[in-house]
Amino acid sequence: MTTTSALGAPPRGVLGRIADRVGGGLVQAVLVVIGVFWLVPTLGLFVVSIRQETANNSSGWWTAFTKPAEFTLRNYADLLATGFTSSFWNTVAITVPTTVLVIGIAAMAAYAFAWMQFPGRDALFLVVVGLLVVPIQIALIPIAKLYGGLGIFGSIPGVVLFHVAFGLPFAIFLLRNFFAGIPGSLLEAARMDGAGEWKIFSTVVFPLAKPAVASLGIFQFLWVWNDLLVALVFANTENQPMTKALQSQMRQFGTNVDILAPGAFLSLIIPLILFFAFQRYFVQGMMAGSVK
């Protein structure tokens, strides 16, 4: 796929030639500077998170490299003592079920959109395309009311349900486009053999769609893991994920950087690992869903 080459594009093209003439060295130097620009903020967060509070308050984190004595894991210990662990598990408890549910529900719908005939199919799919860009703000008040009535306001299932609903348009869109690319002859053959729709879906189409499911999965995971707004509205303090827990620490920024920095770093370490492990799928999903 072109998407796989996106991160490792073959060296050819337009300004590349100019670059050669002006001197590839200059371009390289510029890119190094840009790269540093992009890396430094995250590096700063990390260094601050492992540096003594007093040192952070008195000098810049970049001075720490000459003073290794300032490094400490104390901040992390302090953070865990504030009960951050439970918000970590809340994040997991929200993110994992959401991802699984979105994939399952969307795959079924996408299969119907791609390979079944039913009245209104194409119109309904256009509605899904339209829903891709609906801002979640529109649903905050109505769903808060609805959850109040159902008694799940503030609970983890409520947060999950909300994420699932708003993850569906993208997921259906992405999977349907992928499913539609599966050769119809495979399905026909299965049907000839007398396989039912569910069997075709679960044993032919879904397994073939692994790359798309992986793309969707990582996207959905990151999206929910990193969400703040939904948690802010629908999760109470007991069920709050890391983002909300950090946000509540945010008010006294400056006096508690030593809690915020390790918290922020812990919250981004799992996404980063996933990102580096699955960046190929990540890029594919992004390409496929770039209408979003």
Binding site: I34, G35, V40, V48, M250, V257, A264, L272
Partner: peptide, 21 residues
């Protein structure tokens, strides 16, 4: 990868990062 990496970071964490910056 370096320039792309912030996509994986939550906006919340990005916010903390830039509060420091």
């Amino acid at each position: 990868l370096i320039v792309f990496m912030p996509m994986a970071v939550s906006l919340m964490a990005s916010g903390v990062i830039f509060r420091l910056v």
